Computed example of a mutant assay.
Amino acid sequence: MNESTTQQVAMITGANKGIGRATAEQLAGLGMTVLIGARDRQRGEKAAAELRAAGADAHAVALDVTDPAVVRGTAKWVEERFGHLDVLVNNAGITGSGQVSPQDAHDQLPSGIDLDMVRAVFETNVFGVITVINAMLPLLRRSPAPRVVNVSSHAGSLTLTSDPDGPFAALLPSAAYTPSKTALNALTVQYANELRKDGILVNAVAPGYVDTDSNNHTGHLTPAQGAAVVVRLATLGADGPTAGFFGADGPLPW
C-alpha cells in the first residue's frame, strides 16, 4: 500500500558507503525518505539500519544498475510502496582499475587499455545511469518537483583535463573512467533537454577529491563535504538550473 504522497522520497544508487551514503544522510536530515541502493543487499541493509538508528526514514533496495531486470523490479517496489519518486541520485560508479589517483592509473592509459575494462566501466557509469533513469521516470513524473542528479567528476571536464598547465595536468590519461564521466556529462544534457518541458531538472555534479575507497582514502574532502553539492542540486527550487555541471563553488566548464 502506498505511503503518503506528501512525503518526499529520494533514491541514491551506490549509497551504502562514501558519497552516496553521506548524500542519503543529508537528504534524510531534510526530512526525506531515503532509499539506499546497493548491489550488496547486506551492506545496503546495514547502512539503512544505521541511518534508521539515527532517526532517518531509510530503506535498503538491492540495486545492481547493470541488471535491467533488477532495476525494473526496484522501480516496481518503489511504485507499490511509495507511488512516486522525487529525487534520483545516480551515484553508483566504478573506476575500472580500482583507483583514480595518478600514481595508480597506469592500467587505464589509452595506448594499453583493456577494452573489457572500458566496457565494464561504461556499463556502470553510463549505461547503468540510462537504465535507472528510464525505469524511474514514470515515478519521477508523479512528483511535483522531480530532480535527477548524476554524480560525475572534475576529470570529466574536457576543458579542465585538456589544459597542460591546469590543475589536472598530473592526472594520467584514461580511456575508461575519465571518458565515462565525460559521456555522463553529455548524457545529462540530453536528458535535461528532453525533460525540461516536464519540469524535471537534470544536472551533473563533481563532488571533488573525496576520501573514498576509489582513491585509497587519499582525498582531502570528507564524504559529507562531497555530498553537499549533490544535495544542493537534489533540492533545487522550481527556478533552478537544468543541463548544468556543478562543483562546490558553482558551474564547471564542460
Results as ranks from 00 to 15, higher is better:
122 F>Q: 05
46 K>H: 14
174 S>M: 06
157 S>Q: 01
59 H>P: 00
86 D>N: 06
33 T>Q: 08
106 H>K: 14
226 G>T: 05
198 D>Y: 06
67 D>K: 06
171 L>W: 14
166 G>P: 03
97 S>N: 14
72 R>N: 11
165 D>M: 11
37 G>W: 01
209 Y>L: 11
203 N>Q: 00
129 V>W: 05
114 D>M: 08
13 T>L: 05
112 G>L: 08
77 W>Y: 09
184 L>H: 03
183 A>Q: 04
109 L>V: 13
137 L>V: 00
70 V>S: 13
167 P>Y: 04
157 S>P: 01
235 T>M: 03
234 A>W: 05
88 L>A: 03
57 D>E: 14
222 T>L: 10
76 K>L: 10
188 T>M: 07
100 V>K: 14
221 L>I: 09
244 G>S: 11
63 L>A: 00
42 Q>F: 15
57 D>H: 14
41 R>C: 13
52 R>S: 10
48 A>P: 09
231 V>I: 04
217 H>D: 11
175 A>E: 12
156 G>P: 00
50 E>D: 12
203 N>V: 02
209 Y>S: 12
185 N>G: 07
82 F>D: 07
154 H>W: 15
167 P>G: 11
1 M>I: 13
166 G>H: 08
57 D>K: 15
252 L>Q: 10
24 A>P: 09
146 P>F: 02
84 H>C: 04
43 R>T: 13
107 D>V: 13
181 K>R: 01
237 G>H: 01
182 T>A: 15
1 M>K: 14
9 V>D: 07
113 I>F: 09
28 A>T: 02
252 L>Y: 11
95 T>W: 12
115 L>N: 11
128 G>R: 01
199 G>R: 09
70 V>M: 13
53 A>Y: 09
131 T>G: 02
112 G>E: 10
195 L>C: 01
147 R>V: 04
165 D>I: 09
248 A>T: 14
157 S>N: 03
69 A>C: 12
155 A>V: 14
167 P>I: 09
26 Q>K: 02
117 M>C: 01
151 V>D: 03
